[in-house]
């Protein structure tokens, strides 16, 4: 928090810029869902996550169980402009949703971040990380990669979405697409956020090591496309 306050004080007022944004989010994957998105315009010197650094508790709760309440509180505390859960639940493969943000009341919120958990995975998430919001009217496209929060072992079996508990949560569509009875992939939490190395999965729906289907749930980046439309 101290760092954030210092950076606010140093920020040039020339960088401030208010905007009306429509943020279209498309799930590009073949067989992965996203839990509720949190879409935030915020000050530039704050990051929801940083590659190579440990995840915050709030990021962990989002990445392991799709719970964005902690991130919402953190971002609200720095006067971020938020849209929460624009899809109204899970965003299925191939589907799109749009969030609207208006930073007229908060012109220092000049960067955009979006995160949501990727299912099925233990602690995978999509992350658009503090991109500069364009100041000229127009539409801008961003390809977004999948990250691993590094907080949970990727055992790839049905389990819990609570932080620190093993396994991945399985709301109905994910349960229907998953196998069961896997013995668990041998893995350990990595300890830092990094680009996800993908799930392994297997082809055994009633056993094997993983409850994830290798021919359906693997992905190659990008996993999400974000189109930001800036209005005058």
């Amino acid at each position: 928090m101290k760092k954030i306050l210092v950076s606010l004080a140093l920020m040039s007022s020339a960088a401030a810029h208010s905007a009306q944004l429509d943020v279209q989010i498309t799930n590009l994957t073949r067989g992965s869902w996203f839990t509720p998105f949190i879409v935030a315009a915020h000050v530039p010197d704050m990051n929801v996550f940083s590659s190579g650094s440990p995840a915050s508790a709030s990021l962990q709760a989002m990445a392991e169980g799709g719970d964005i309440s902690g991130l919402s509180a953190d971002l609200t505390a720095i006067n971020a402009t938020l849209s929460e859960n624009p899809a109204g639940g899970l965003l299925m493969p191939g589907a799109s949703t749009t969030a609207s943000l208006n930073t007229d009341g908060a012109p220092d919120n000049t960067v955009l971040s979006i995160v949501a958990m990727l299912l099925p995975s233990n602690d995978g998430f999509m992350g658009l990380n503090a991109i500069s919001i364009p100041t000229e009217a127009g539409s801008y496209s961003y390809n977004v990669s999948a990250y691993d929060a590094g907080t949970e072992a990727n055992d790839e079996i049905l389990g819990s979405g609570a932080p620190g508990e093993p396994g991945y949560p399985a709301p109905p569509p994910i349960a229907a697409a998953s196998g069961e009875g896997g013995t668990g992939v041998s893995a350990a939490a990595e300890g830092f956020v990094h680009i996800h190395r993908n799930v392994l999965g297997d082809s055994d729906l009633v056993g094997g090591s993983s409850d994830i289907d290798s021919t359906v749930h693997r992905w190659l980046n990008p996993v999400v496309r974000v189109v930001v439309t800036v209005s005058e």
């Binding site: 590009l28 067989g31 493969p93 359906v216 749930h217 992905w219 190659l220 990008p222």
Partner: peptide, 13 residues
Amino acid sequence: DVNDQVTMHGGVV
């Protein structure tokens, strides 16, 4: 296929 729609490819196993 699992969904009759175009998506990104997940690669081959």
